[in-house]
Design a binder for these strands. Structure first.
Lengths: 126, 126
DNA sequence: ACACTTCAAGTACAGTTGTACTGCAAACTT
DNA sequence: AAGTTTGCAGTACAACTGTACTTGAAGTGT
Protein backbone atom coordinates (compact mmCIF):
# COMPACT_ATOMS: atom_id res chain seq x y z
CA UNK A 1 0.00 0.00 0.00
CA UNK A 2 0.97 3.53 0.55
CA UNK A 3 1.28 5.11 -2.85
CA UNK A 4 -0.07 8.35 -1.56
CA UNK A 5 1.98 11.41 -2.45
CA UNK A 6 3.54 12.85 0.69
CA UNK A 7 1.75 15.60 2.56
CA UNK A 8 3.01 19.12 2.30
CA UNK A 9 3.37 21.20 5.45
CA UNK A 10 0.16 23.07 4.99
CA UNK A 11 -1.72 19.92 4.23
CA UNK A 12 -0.42 18.38 7.42
CA UNK A 13 -1.90 21.09 9.52
CA UNK A 14 -5.27 20.64 7.96
CA UNK A 15 -5.07 16.88 8.27
CA UNK A 16 -4.28 17.26 11.93
CA UNK A 17 -7.34 19.40 12.45
CA UNK A 18 -9.46 16.83 10.67
CA UNK A 19 -8.22 14.15 13.04
CA UNK A 20 -8.83 16.40 15.97
CA UNK A 21 -12.35 17.46 15.30
CA UNK A 22 -13.51 14.61 13.11
CA UNK A 23 -15.57 15.00 9.95
CA UNK A 24 -16.18 18.66 9.32
CA UNK A 25 -16.98 21.30 6.76
CA UNK A 26 -14.53 23.84 5.50
CA UNK A 27 -15.86 26.47 7.84
CA UNK A 28 -15.29 24.40 10.90
CA UNK A 29 -11.79 23.44 9.90
CA UNK A 30 -11.02 27.02 9.10
CA UNK A 31 -12.27 28.21 12.45
CA UNK A 32 -10.25 25.66 14.33
CA UNK A 33 -7.09 26.42 12.45
CA UNK A 34 -7.63 30.15 12.80
CA UNK A 35 -7.23 29.83 16.53
CA UNK A 36 -3.62 28.96 15.93
CA UNK A 37 -2.58 30.97 12.96
CA UNK A 38 -3.99 33.33 10.43
CA UNK A 39 -5.10 31.56 7.33
CA UNK A 40 -7.58 32.36 4.63
CA UNK A 41 -10.80 30.43 4.35
CA UNK A 42 -10.15 29.65 0.70
CA UNK A 43 -6.69 28.40 1.51
CA UNK A 44 -8.10 25.86 3.90
CA UNK A 45 -10.56 24.90 1.23
CA UNK A 46 -7.75 24.31 -1.21
CA UNK A 47 -5.85 22.17 1.27
CA UNK A 48 -8.91 20.05 1.90
CA UNK A 49 -9.42 19.56 -1.80
CA UNK A 50 -5.79 18.53 -2.20
CA UNK A 51 -6.01 16.23 0.78
CA UNK A 52 -8.85 14.49 -0.96
CA UNK A 53 -7.08 14.33 -4.29
CA UNK A 54 -4.08 12.74 -2.60
CA UNK A 55 -6.21 10.15 -0.88
CA UNK A 56 -5.86 11.38 2.69
CA UNK A 57 -9.47 12.51 2.99
CA UNK A 58 -12.84 11.87 1.51
CA UNK A 59 -15.87 14.09 1.33
CA UNK A 60 -19.57 14.04 0.79
CA UNK A 61 -22.09 16.72 0.14
CA UNK A 62 -24.42 17.53 2.98
CA UNK A 63 -26.91 19.91 1.51
CA UNK A 64 -25.05 23.06 0.59
CA UNK A 65 -21.95 22.12 2.55
CA UNK A 66 -19.23 19.61 1.89
CA UNK A 67 -18.10 17.45 4.76
CA UNK A 68 -14.55 16.17 4.80
CA UNK A 69 -13.34 13.16 6.77
CA UNK A 70 -9.84 11.81 7.23
CA UNK A 71 -9.24 8.55 5.41
CA UNK A 72 -5.86 7.79 6.90
CA UNK A 73 -5.06 7.23 10.51
CA UNK A 74 -2.69 9.63 12.23
CA UNK A 75 -0.46 6.72 13.02
CA UNK A 76 0.01 5.87 9.39
CA UNK A 77 0.74 9.38 8.31
CA UNK A 78 3.14 9.87 11.16
CA UNK A 79 4.97 6.74 10.25
CA UNK A 80 5.26 7.65 6.62
CA UNK A 81 6.27 11.22 7.28
CA UNK A 82 8.73 10.58 10.05
CA UNK A 83 10.31 7.62 8.33
CA UNK A 84 10.94 9.74 5.33
CA UNK A 85 12.43 12.51 7.43
CA UNK A 86 14.69 10.13 9.33
CA UNK A 87 15.82 8.66 6.07
CA UNK A 88 16.65 11.94 4.44
CA UNK A 89 18.07 13.81 7.36
CA UNK A 90 19.74 11.04 9.33
CA UNK A 91 20.33 8.41 6.71
CA UNK A 92 17.91 6.13 8.50
CA UNK A 93 19.38 6.41 11.97
CA UNK A 94 16.64 7.02 14.51
CA UNK A 95 18.63 7.93 17.57
CA UNK A 96 19.73 11.45 16.71
CA UNK A 97 16.14 12.44 16.40
CA UNK A 98 15.12 10.81 19.67
CA UNK A 99 18.04 12.47 21.40
CA UNK A 100 17.09 15.82 20.08
CA UNK A 101 13.51 15.42 21.17
CA UNK A 102 14.38 14.39 24.68
CA UNK A 103 17.22 16.81 25.23
CA UNK A 104 16.15 19.92 23.46
CA UNK A 105 12.41 20.07 23.63
CA UNK A 106 11.23 20.65 27.17
CA UNK A 107 9.58 17.41 28.18
CA UNK A 108 7.63 17.35 31.41
CA UNK A 109 8.62 15.11 34.27
CA UNK A 110 5.54 12.99 33.63
CA UNK A 111 6.56 12.60 30.04
CA UNK A 112 9.93 11.36 31.12
CA UNK A 113 8.29 8.87 33.44
CA UNK A 114 6.08 7.65 30.69
CA UNK A 115 9.08 7.21 28.49
CA UNK A 116 10.87 5.18 31.06
CA UNK A 117 7.96 2.81 31.26
CA UNK A 118 7.75 2.67 27.53
CA UNK A 119 11.39 1.74 27.30
CA UNK A 120 10.99 -0.97 29.91
CA UNK A 121 8.09 -2.39 28.05
CA UNK A 122 10.03 -2.39 24.80
CA UNK A 123 12.99 -4.09 26.32
CA UNK A 124 11.10 -7.11 27.49
CA UNK A 125 8.32 -7.42 24.97
CA UNK A 126 9.45 -8.60 21.56
CA UNK B 1 18.58 34.42 13.65
CA UNK B 2 17.43 31.68 11.43
CA UNK B 3 15.80 33.32 8.47
CA UNK B 4 16.98 30.56 6.24
CA UNK B 5 14.30 29.08 4.00
CA UNK B 6 13.54 25.52 5.09
CA UNK B 7 15.34 22.66 3.44
CA UNK B 8 13.52 20.51 0.96
CA UNK B 9 13.80 16.74 1.17
CA UNK B 10 16.37 16.44 -1.53
CA UNK B 11 18.42 19.24 -0.09
CA UNK B 12 18.41 17.51 3.27
CA UNK B 13 20.00 14.41 1.85
CA UNK B 14 22.76 16.40 0.30
CA UNK B 15 23.27 18.43 3.45
CA UNK B 16 23.58 15.23 5.43
CA UNK B 17 26.26 13.95 3.11
CA UNK B 18 28.12 17.21 3.47
CA UNK B 19 28.12 16.83 7.22
CA UNK B 20 29.20 13.27 6.90
CA UNK B 21 32.13 13.63 4.61
CA UNK B 22 33.03 17.23 5.27
CA UNK B 23 33.94 19.75 2.58
CA UNK B 24 33.73 18.09 -0.79
CA UNK B 25 33.27 18.58 -4.47
CA UNK B 26 30.16 17.67 -6.39
CA UNK B 27 31.66 14.41 -7.55
CA UNK B 28 32.40 13.21 -4.08
CA UNK B 29 28.97 14.08 -2.80
CA UNK B 30 27.41 12.41 -5.78
CA UNK B 31 29.40 9.26 -5.25
CA UNK B 32 28.49 9.06 -1.60
CA UNK B 33 24.84 9.62 -2.26
CA UNK B 34 24.83 7.15 -5.13
CA UNK B 35 25.63 4.38 -2.71
CA UNK B 36 22.20 4.87 -1.24
CA UNK B 37 20.01 5.80 -4.12
CA UNK B 38 20.19 6.55 -7.79
CA UNK B 39 20.57 10.20 -8.46
CA UNK B 40 21.96 12.17 -11.33
CA UNK B 41 25.22 14.02 -10.99
CA UNK B 42 23.67 17.26 -12.18
CA UNK B 43 20.87 16.89 -9.69
CA UNK B 44 23.31 16.77 -6.85
CA UNK B 45 24.97 19.79 -8.34
CA UNK B 46 21.71 21.67 -8.33
CA UNK B 47 21.02 20.76 -4.73
CA UNK B 48 24.43 21.98 -3.69
CA UNK B 49 23.88 25.24 -5.49
CA UNK B 50 20.53 25.66 -3.79
CA UNK B 51 22.01 24.78 -0.43
CA UNK B 52 24.44 27.60 -0.93
CA UNK B 53 21.80 30.04 -2.10
CA UNK B 54 19.76 29.28 1.01
CA UNK B 55 22.70 29.82 3.29
CA UNK B 56 23.24 26.24 4.41
CA UNK B 57 26.52 25.81 2.60
CA UNK B 58 29.35 27.84 1.19
CA UNK B 59 31.78 27.05 -1.56
CA UNK B 60 35.12 28.04 -2.95
CA UNK B 61 36.83 27.25 -6.18
CA UNK B 62 39.74 24.87 -5.96
CA UNK B 63 41.26 24.91 -9.38
CA UNK B 64 38.71 23.49 -11.76
CA UNK B 65 36.57 22.06 -8.98
CA UNK B 66 34.21 23.73 -6.55
CA UNK B 67 34.36 22.65 -2.94
CA UNK B 68 31.25 22.91 -0.83
CA UNK B 69 31.19 23.05 2.96
CA UNK B 70 28.25 23.02 5.33
CA UNK B 71 27.69 26.34 7.04
CA UNK B 72 25.07 25.16 9.50
CA UNK B 73 25.51 22.58 12.18
CA UNK B 74 23.40 19.44 11.99
CA UNK B 75 22.01 20.28 15.38
CA UNK B 76 20.59 23.55 14.18
CA UNK B 77 19.02 22.14 11.09
CA UNK B 78 17.57 19.26 13.02
CA UNK B 79 16.05 21.62 15.53
CA UNK B 80 14.52 23.84 12.90
CA UNK B 81 13.22 20.99 10.82
CA UNK B 82 11.86 18.85 13.58
CA UNK B 83 10.30 21.74 15.43
CA UNK B 84 8.43 22.68 12.34
CA UNK B 85 7.27 19.14 11.79
CA UNK B 86 6.10 18.76 15.36
CA UNK B 87 4.25 22.02 15.08
CA UNK B 88 2.46 21.13 11.88
CA UNK B 89 1.74 17.51 12.46
CA UNK B 90 1.21 17.42 16.22
CA UNK B 91 0.26 20.96 17.00
CA UNK B 92 3.43 21.35 19.02
CA UNK B 93 3.10 18.25 21.16
CA UNK B 94 6.36 16.34 21.24
CA UNK B 95 5.32 13.08 22.83
CA UNK B 96 3.46 11.44 19.96
CA UNK B 97 6.60 11.65 17.92
CA UNK B 98 8.82 10.25 20.65
CA UNK B 99 6.37 7.45 21.21
CA UNK B 100 6.32 6.57 17.58
CA UNK B 101 10.08 6.54 17.38
CA UNK B 102 10.52 4.29 20.38
CA UNK B 103 7.66 1.95 19.67
CA UNK B 104 7.61 1.61 15.95
CA UNK B 105 11.15 1.97 14.76
CA UNK B 106 13.26 -0.95 15.88
CA UNK B 107 15.64 0.47 18.43
CA UNK B 108 18.48 -1.70 19.59
CA UNK B 109 18.81 -2.73 23.20
CA UNK B 110 21.81 -0.47 23.55
CA UNK B 111 19.81 2.41 22.22
CA UNK B 112 17.18 1.80 24.83
CA UNK B 113 19.84 1.75 27.51
CA UNK B 114 21.23 4.98 26.30
CA UNK B 115 17.80 6.50 26.37
CA UNK B 116 17.25 5.43 29.91
CA UNK B 117 20.41 7.18 30.96
CA UNK B 118 19.49 10.21 28.98
CA UNK B 119 16.17 10.37 30.71
CA UNK B 120 17.77 10.04 34.13
CA UNK B 121 20.15 12.80 33.32
CA UNK B 122 17.34 15.03 32.14
CA UNK B 123 15.31 14.42 35.22
CA UNK B 124 17.91 15.59 37.66
CA UNK B 125 20.25 17.98 35.98
CA UNK B 126 17.88 20.66 34.79
C1' DA C 1 -39.42 39.29 -4.45
C1' DC C 2 -35.06 42.10 -3.57
C1' DA C 3 -30.88 43.12 -1.43
C1' DC C 4 -27.55 41.09 1.43
C1' DT C 5 -24.76 37.42 3.27
C1' DT C 6 -22.55 32.71 2.93
C1' DC C 7 -20.10 29.47 1.02
C1' DA C 8 -18.42 25.99 -2.48
C1' DA C 9 -16.07 25.67 -6.87
C1' DG C 10 -13.09 27.13 -9.94
C1' DT C 11 -9.23 29.68 -11.28
C1' DA C 12 -4.84 32.08 -10.63
C1' DC C 13 -0.22 32.67 -10.01
C1' DA C 14 4.41 33.18 -8.39
C1' DG C 15 7.77 30.48 -5.89
C1' DT C 16 9.77 25.93 -4.84
C1' DT C 17 11.15 21.30 -5.89
C1' DG C 18 12.69 17.26 -8.29
C1' DT C 19 15.04 16.10 -11.94
C1' DA C 20 17.92 16.53 -15.77
C1' DC C 21 19.90 18.15 -20.44
C1' DT C 22 23.37 21.31 -22.86
C1' DG C 23 27.44 23.80 -23.65
C1' DC C 24 31.80 24.55 -22.95
C1' DA C 25 36.44 24.59 -20.86
C1' DA C 26 40.09 21.98 -18.45
C1' DA C 27 42.54 17.60 -18.06
C1' DC C 28 43.96 13.15 -19.70
C1' DT C 29 45.11 9.84 -23.63
C1' DT C 30 47.25 8.29 -27.34
C1' DA D 1 47.77 18.12 -31.17
C1' DA D 2 43.30 15.89 -31.87
C1' DG D 3 39.95 13.08 -29.49
C1' DT D 4 37.88 11.68 -25.21
C1' DT D 5 36.53 12.34 -20.70
C1' DT D 6 35.34 15.09 -16.72
C1' DG D 7 32.88 18.40 -14.40
C1' DC D 8 31.02 23.12 -13.66
C1' DA D 9 27.66 26.70 -15.07
C1' DG D 10 23.60 27.65 -17.00
C1' DT D 11 19.12 26.57 -18.47
C1' DA D 12 14.81 23.96 -18.55
C1' DC D 13 10.59 22.52 -17.14
C1' DA D 14 6.61 20.15 -15.29
C1' DA D 15 4.66 19.22 -10.79
C1' DC D 16 3.80 20.79 -6.39
C1' DT D 17 2.97 24.53 -2.77
C1' DG D 18 1.30 28.41 -0.46
C1' DT D 19 -1.84 31.59 -0.83
C1' DA D 20 -5.84 33.88 -2.32
C1' DC D 21 -9.28 36.23 -5.66
C1' DT D 22 -13.63 35.54 -8.37
C1' DT D 23 -17.93 33.75 -9.62
C1' DG D 24 -22.20 32.02 -8.88
C1' DA D 25 -25.65 29.62 -6.40
C1' DA D 26 -28.12 29.02 -2.10
C1' DG D 27 -29.95 30.93 2.29
C1' DT D 28 -31.66 34.98 5.19
C1' DG D 29 -33.85 39.24 6.56
C1' DT D 30 -37.39 42.52 5.49
Amino acid sequence: MGERPALSKGEMEVARVLWEIGPAGVRQVHETLSEQREIDFATVQTYLRRLERKGYASSRRDGRARIYSARTKPRTVIRETVDELVERLFGGDTMPLVRHLIEDRGLQAEDLDELRELIDRMEQGE
